[in-house]
């Protein structure tokens, strides 16, 4: 479970997030949508402390992770993240990319780490690419490796920051399919996305952000069929 209480983020004079309070329950899949510049990504990046909220508090289970004394790295062990632009380590093979963090962060044996990596790569359908370097992969393949890399840490929660926005259209599906499978295993997921169909189909709840504010929070059927706010209606008219 992750809970935010009145988080506000300012970059200089600009306020990017305003008083966002929400709770993401264990096993829940939450889609964060909204126009660009609405603060979606910043919100997501606050959840694993890549950005520190200027004000407000965040709890991971019973622990306040925004406490200044809190070790950020210890928090991030439990929260996986997938980026829009993958950020695979280009000088490591696919297998090494996935097996690296568990060894360095959790201190598990090399053998065990590579076993985990092999299994995860099989799950995302990339067994034949284990020895390849990231530059040899397509965007969709890269993103699937990035998902496997995050899962190798066995996180409680997975954050996705526009995971399909940098992909060629025909590669979007393979990544969304992996994410659907993951959702079906009961993984807690927070997904910033422009894929409305994915949000409709897979998410348990939608967060709609605009100009840094959480202006609507609803289950997908309510949100897509009968949005409560004018702003959400307007947005949906444009994207659907």
């Amino acid at each position: 479970m992750i809970k935010t209480e009145n988080i506000t983020k300012k970059f200089g004079k600009q306020t990017v997030l305003k008083n966002i309070s929400t709770t993401i329950q264990h096993g829940e899949v939450v889609a964060v949508i909204g126009p660009s510049g609405s603060g979606k990504s910043t919100f997501l990046r606050c959840l694993n402390l890549l950005e520190l909220p200027t004000e407000g508090k965040i709890w991971l289970n019973k622990q306040e992770i925004t406490d200044p004394k809190q070790n950020k790295l210890a928090v991030r062990k439990h929260i996986g993240m997938v980026f829009q632009h993958f950020h695979l380590f280009p000088h490591m093979t696919v297998l090494d990319n996935v097996a690296y963090a568990p060894q360095k962060v959790k201190g598990i044996s090399k053998q065990e780490a590579y076993q985990i990596a092999t299994n995860l790569l099989a799950k995302v359908g990339l067994t034949d690419k284990e020895e390849a370097y990231p530059n040899r992969l397509s965007g969709g393949q890269k993103q699937r490796v990035a998902i496997a890399r995050a899962l190798a840490m066995e996180p409680e929660i997975m954050l996705f920051d526009e995971p399909t926005s940098a992909l060629d259209p025909e590669m979007v599906k393979e990544v969304l399919d992996v994410m659907k499978d993951l959702a079906n295993t009961g993984m807690t997921m927070v997904v910033v996305t422009h894929e409305m169909n994915f949000a409709k189909e897979v998410a348990d709840r939608i967060l709609f952000l605009d100009q840094g504010k959480l202006i609507e929070e609803a289950d997908p059927s309510t949100f897509f069929q009968a949005p409560a706010t004018e702003r959400a209606k307007d947005f949906l008219d444009k994207v659907l």
Binding site: R76, I79, F83, A101, K104, A150
Partner: peptide, 30 residues
């Protein structure tokens, strides 16, 4: 070295030293 590399390492919880030694410096040296 692309900033995303540091972020990816941080998001995985990799401490500063191994991040520099195994992820940032090898790419920088190349």
């Amino acid at each position: 070295v692309e900033k995303g590399q540091t972020e990816a390492a941080e998001a995985l919880g990799i401490p500063y030293r191994p991040m520099m030694a195994h992820i940032i410096l090898p790419q920088a040296f190349k």
